[in-house]
Write a protein that binds this DNA or RNA. Sequence first.
DNA 1: TGTACATCAGTGAACGCGCGTTCACTGATGTAC
DNA 2: TGTACATCAGTGAACGCGCGTTCACTGATGTAC
Lengths: 224, 224
Amino acid sequence: MINPTRKQILHENTRDEIKSVAWKQIEQQSAAQLSLGSIAREMGLTTPALYRYFASRNELVSALIEDAHISFAQALEKGLSSLPLDDHAGRFRALCQGYRLWAISHPQPYSLLFGSPVPGYRLDNEAARAAEHSFLILLGVVLAAQQAGKLSPQTEAVSLSILHGEQQPGPPAMVIHLALSAWSTIHGITSLELNGHNQIILAEHANEFAEIEITRLMQSIGIK
Amino acid sequence: MINPTRKQILHENTRDEIKSVAWKQIEQQSAAQLSLGSIAREMGLTTPALYRYFASRNELVSALIEDAHISFAQALEKGLSSLPLDDHAGRFRALCQGYRLWAISHPQPYSLLFGSPVPGYRLDNEAARAAEHSFLILLGVVLAAQQAGKLSPQTEAVSLSILHGEQQPGPPAMVIHLALSAWSTIHGITSLELNGHNQIILAEHANEFAEIEITRLMQSIGIK
DNA sequence: TGTACATCAGTGAACGCGCGTTCACTGATGTAC
DNA sequence: TGTACATCAGTGAACGCGCGTTCACTGATGTAC
């Protein structure tokens, strides 16, 4: 890969095209229903041709999940980039909003990442590390706020201190706990919305609802 | 059905047995993978025999979802039954805990109800009404607290007043909003846990985490 | 510049699998006279 | 009490489908001499 030949580049391009066709189909249906046959058909190829690029369906799904994690993390970071580092509340809010917006505009990728596991698929190590990335972004924002003394949660969040022992390096347990709280909250709102479960109640007020809930969350973890 | 004959009773029993075998298999795998063949095999029948009891796979799934809704709602109500009607905070907490416990002990049924929709399945009206039931239980608890003046949310929850117009009968918009907040929150914690997404962080502290989060939620909606 | 060779993307046929569903049928059970 | 009939649970074979995967192959492309 240090000196990619012309053939290697072509190979990589086709690999990318397969993934992009796969995404196109996932957007419309669901990741569980993704089939190699329909991808090949759309590309004007026969199914076995795909085996030049992915050793199995599973490997393709792995690659897709990894890409989704990267795309998701990038979207979150982009939403933060325009905000000053000391605007902790603003950054936190932007993160929550960015999270929900990405999820809403990419419902199938989102449920691929955070929904029920795809049947028969097993997460490998590389994908697991990509999964952490988006959480680390959230963790970073909460940690920065805490270090600046801009965090005063209404509830004691000490349970996780047990988890890491007492003198563990890395973010304080409280910060981890609060970041996870935030994640849980946003995920709850988002996934109910994506699966249409709150639609009867909210109808077109989903945006307002999410906004208010983010405010409540911010009050609850006391970010300023 | 007013005067069920012996045959009709037997028919109903077999119907129940099919559903219970289906549940047994769903508990282990996933609802999307449920197959008529494996159900029949486990019952010592051939696949076409099931068509005496359900017109299609879809109808069976419908019946299962409906049953799950009923079972879920009953579990919630049972958790409330031992608590005095004026212990609003206690009832709310019990409801949240009951919600999470049912979900954890019935992971597949839970994701059948509140996860991604089963591919190819369309919710009918009867199932939709059963779905409302569990939410109405939550709504009832929040409403009772509000009427007793035991509710003082930290955030203004007025957006939904627009939804129902101004002089709409039924619970005030704020109550609906807060009930939905609670549902979102618990669902978020629960579904992250069920899909194993917070496992790396929480490990065996999931219970503690949930407990603290419920407390935070109660503080946030100000239930006393 | 031309020839021999290696590479490798893509094909087409086949395998084995499981799926939901249909259909004509058998045979036991319960009912009516 | 015994016979004729209707009911209906369950069978076994078949249909048509789509799936992932394998394999021997063709044929174009690029490389080495």
